Amino acid sequence: MSIQHFRVALIPFFAAFCLPVFAHPETLVKVKDAEDQLGARVGYIELDLNSGKILESFRPEERFPMMSTFKVLLCGAVLSRVDAGQEQLGRRIHYSQNDLVEYSPVTEKHLTDGMTVRELCSAAITMSDNTAANLLLTTIGGPKELTAFLHNMGDHVTRLDRWEPELNEAIPNDERDTTMPAAMATTLRKLLTGELLTLASRQQLIDWMEADKVAGPLLRSALPAGWFIADKSGAGERGSRGIIAALGPDGKPSRIVVIYTTGSQATMDERNRQIAEIGASLIKHW
């Protein structure tokens, strides 16, 4: 067993022997301040990774656009098919120029040779490549099948209805392509620590998230040296922004954090800054 596999296998073990965790309302004060600064709703939840206990939450059962955070769930569904012998990570998928959609920095470079399922998941999570996500959605049967996968996990809230990039439209009061912070946090925890996926697939999923290259201005910008984070960000229309993450000190994750916002007129930089400040408060009061 590799060191990384050992780390993920012992996530519940280490967490069980940690000192009790206590909620700190100071972080919620910052979440509410972010709402004021952005002029928009902000949803927040913080779960203990081992027990699933909610440590703090704000608007945990209000719907927010998922945006690209759905790509972690998508690759979880792909990995479940791999575990069941219905898919192979090494299978190569070929596609054409007509398949390319807006923001496809990886797939646009491989029109000639195609990409493997493993490479597509890596591109979808680490670079948020939209064509990679659409190609992977095709392998599982489309958005409705991802929703069905989530329902089978016990998540009857999260739903995907459309493809990239239309799913980022974020129309107010439109339930399409949305989740709730509580539902997303619980589902992410199941994917990373539950028995739904094999140990190898859980490790692969967290490795992809740990290698995320496009979430630097968010929670990662607030992390002290030595902290662990595996995350996936999302951005959408109407001032929408979000991030889902597993993080913790001492090089291992111990909490799940989900943050979503929508309806702001603020710039992307300002949305990023507010999420980073929430992260800084979380870490300060850990």
Rank of each mutant, 00 (worst) to 15 (best):
K53E: 14
E145V: 11
M66R: 01
I283V: 10
L188N: 04
M180A: 11
F58Y: 11
V101A: 08
K144F: 11
D33F: 09
T186P: 08
V117I: 15
V214P: 05
K190W: 11
L89W: 07
L79G: 02
I54S: 07
E277Y: 08
Q204E: 12
L282C: 09
F70T: 06
R41I: 09
A77Q: 11
E277M: 09
I278Q: 01
T69V: 03
K213R: 12
L247D: 03
T112Q: 12
T261F: 13
A34I: 09
D207S: 15
N173F: 14
T261R: 05
L188Q: 00
P249C: 07
M67P: 02
I244E: 02
M268Y: 08
G142E: 06
I54V: 15
D174V: 03
V29N: 14
A246Q: 07
I243W: 05
Q37F: 14
V157K: 11
V258H: 04
N272L: 03
I256R: 01
G142H: 05
T126A: 10
E270P: 05
G85P: 01
I171C: 15
L199Q: 12
L192G: 00
I275H: 03
L205E: 01
G90K: 12
R241M: 04
F58W: 15
G251P: 09
V31F: 00
C75E: 05
R241E: 03
P181S: 04
D250P: 09
M180V: 13
G142Q: 04
V258R: 00
I171V: 15
R63I: 08
G234A: 09
A211F: 09
P217D: 11
I243R: 00
A215S: 08
K30S: 09
I256P: 00
C75N: 00
F64I: 01
R41D: 06
E169T: 12
H24Y: 08
Y44P: 01
I259G: 02
A124F: 02
K144G: 12
A124R: 01
G85Y: 08
D231S: 05
S128W: 03
S254M: 11
L79E: 00
K32P: 02
G226N: 12
D177E: 03
G43M: 00
K252H: 11
M67V: 10
E102P: 15
D36I: 12
R81P: 01
L218W: 02
I140F: 10
V72S: 07
I125V: 11
F58S: 11
L247C: 07
K252Q: 12
M184P: 00
A123C: 07
T131W: 04
N173K: 14
A123R: 01
T107I: 06
M127Y: 11
V101R: 08
G39M: 10
A183C: 09
P60K: 12
R241V: 04
A148Y: 11
A84S: 13
I244M: 10
T116E: 14
P60Q: 15
R271C: 11
V72L: 06
A182I: 13
L38K: 05
H151R: 14
A246H: 05
W163R: 09
A84Q: 14
R238G: 11
P165F: 04
D250V: 12
S221Q: 14
G279H: 01
E35C: 02
E169R: 11
S254F: 09
L146E: 02
N168Y: 04
G216S: 08
G248K: 01
A123I: 05
P224Y: 04
A266F: 13
S233N: 00
P165A: 07
S122C: 08
N272A: 06
Q265Y: 14
A40K: 01
I54W: 09
S57Q: 12
G194C: 10
Y260Q: 03
R189N: 10
A183Q: 15
D113R: 11
L135S: 04
A124D: 02
G251L: 11
I125G: 00
R189Q: 15
I171G: 15
L247H: 02
G43C: 03
V31Y: 01
G234P: 00
R273Q: 14
D207I: 11
I54N: 06
L167W: 01
D250A: 14
R220F: 02
G90M: 13
V214R: 06
S240Q: 06
S122A: 13
R189F: 15
L150C: 09
N50W: 12
F64H: 02
S96D: 14
A170H: 10
A183G: 08
P25V: 15
L47K: 04
L79H: 02
V157T: 12
L137Y: 09
D212G: 07
T107V: 09
V78P: 00
T158H: 00
D48W: 01
N130W: 00
Q265P: 14
D36V: 15
N152E: 15
M127P: 00
A215R: 05
L247N: 04
S96Q: 14
A215E: 06
A222D: 07
S221A: 15
V258Y: 04
L28P: 04
F64A: 01
S201L: 07
R255T: 04
G39S: 13
W286L: 04
E102F: 11
R271P: 06
N173Q: 13
S68P: 01
L146I: 11
G226Q: 10
E108P: 07
T262R: 08
C121Y: 00
G114I: 02
R238D: 07
V106T: 10
H110R: 13
S96N: 13
Q204D: 09
R202Y: 05
P181Q: 00
V157M: 11
E210M: 12
